[in-house]
Design a protein around this nucleic acid. Sequence first.
RNA 1: CGGGGUAUGGCGCAGUCUGGCAGCGCGCUUGUUUUGGGUACAAGAGGCCCUCAGUUCGAAUCUGAGUACCCCGACCA
Length: 578
Amino acid sequence: MRYSKMFMPTRREDPADAEIASHKLLIKAGFIRQVARGIYTLLPLGQRSVRRIERIVREEMDKAGAQELLMPAIQPAELWKESNRWNEYGPELMRFQDRKQSDFCLGPTHEEVITDILRNDVTSYKQLPINLYQIQSKFRDEIRPRFGLMRGREFIMKDAYSFDVDIEGANKSYDIMYKAYEAIFDRFGFEYRAVEADSGNIGGSRSHEFQVLAETGEDEIVSCQSCDYAANVEKAEIQIAKSEIKNEVEAGTLEEVYTPKMKTIAEVSTFLERKPEDFVKTLIYLAGEQFIAVLVRGDHNANELKLKNLLKSDGMDTTEFRMANDVEVGKMTKAPVGFAGPVGLKMPIYADLSVAPMANFIVGANKKDTHFLNVNFERDVEISEFADLREAKGGDACGKCGGVLESFRGIEVGHIFYLGTKYSAAMKARVQNKEGESCPLEMGCYGIGITRILAAVVEQNHDEKGIMWPMAIAPFQVMIQPLQMKNEDVVSTAETIYKALKDAGIDALLDDRNQGAGTKFKDFELIGIPLRVTIGARGLAEGKIEYKKRTDEAFEMIPLDGIVEHVICDIKSFKLNT
RNA sequence: CGGGGUAUGGCGCAGUCUGGCAGCGCGCUUGUUUUGGGUACAAGAGGCCCUCAGUUCGAAUCUGAGUACCCCGACCA
């Protein structure tokens, strides 16, 4: 491809509304443009890289025995009503009506459609196992889309669905996908971790996320330094040290203190000059119709999954479970948000084990701009139950082996779930097993965020000058730069090299613009093509060509008659490595 | 959904407080120049100042309503 013909609008200045490297660089280097909030166009360069990502995903999925199909983005409400997700999914589901006022949605995922297909055409265990996948645009009306392609409302996803006659088979299908995902993310050159995860509103029990390690990631994960345990903090199990027994200190006098407009622990602790560990946070949740309060230490976070499980085991209705909103908090605590506390609170109060040994702690006073000092259990607060309710954090003891947990931030690029019969039972997708009994299909589902991978790759592969694409994903493999466009030797040499590389099946970009060397170098660095072949009058006089990798500082001079072979050889070795 | 912010040429911004000819840099076009790190000079093109409604002799600027986008939060209690 010739640079002069390629539509690749680069910018000199950082876009005003991008925060993180991948968002900035993808716009600046001409890969994407925003159309609306969380909705982007993939420009030719972006589309080229996405195609390469898709190709790798397809190869590995096919290798794992999955078959590609394509389901519609538009889905009828009827199917979603069968699984009850028409109600459960909430406002994130993009809904609309056709001209006959029938309800439809834009698919955020495809369990319903695929289950519908299987129930009609699969009747015997002999047709199983089967794994079907597609690569397609998904639609989720996210509360807060952000960071460019990282969290969009329309995005490209690979989603796969496995069907087995029994749990044993389903686990096997799950393991195959786990391995396929490792192969895929290895080929992208990612530094990543597979972590245990909560299965969210997709449903199911067994679940792993594939997290690309990055400071800008939205997820927090912990991994054990001693064993192979790794999990999202939403899910991570920790060991509570038995030594956390009550401190024997004399209880101080309960005391009100004026804390104007101090809502957060950070604000109040700075204001009162006390450590966050001296505070107890009071969180109000709504489970079904019942309000409950949860106490965690000021420097801890509550783990909603653990909380939900505890409430469920206490026989509470948790089909609807969420934090109370501002109005509800105001009503229940008689104070604006930020000043809730357990003293005199009329609802069941659950407390994390780590607050049990605390004494003379600080809480909100259920009164505007006021906190209590020297609060103590029994005397001031009655607790319904102490339990492990907090989120893991770095330094905690591993729930499996007791080793030390280390924390990371990650970008979730893949997620696999064992679904069980959640959808097949609801939608009556059944087959006959060997014994002739009718049983619901055992399902698994497996997602990979294609467009998110594009962003994640940039997060892990860039410097201050621009992107550094891994060979596997680069929009072009090599850039050829004639430096003096008026020098016929330079131009014709560049053309010859360009043609030879193209004939060898290599994606080469010839920078045939009549621009100075500086401009060409800058654009090369910004766009991030892995290899650069520079033809300058100076080197050419000695029969030499300059050759440089985007990731290297230095370049080498290669004899003109060996350059093409050298480039081809390098690209081949890149392929073997990935 | 709550809080904060922004909206002026393709991009990045000033001008708004204190109403009076719509500006700067980059990019773009044409010509000359330069040719190994975003060359230099000259001449140009390009804007309903987000929308609507007010105030005023006069509104990018003041007032009101709306829209779009960005950030923070929804673990704050």
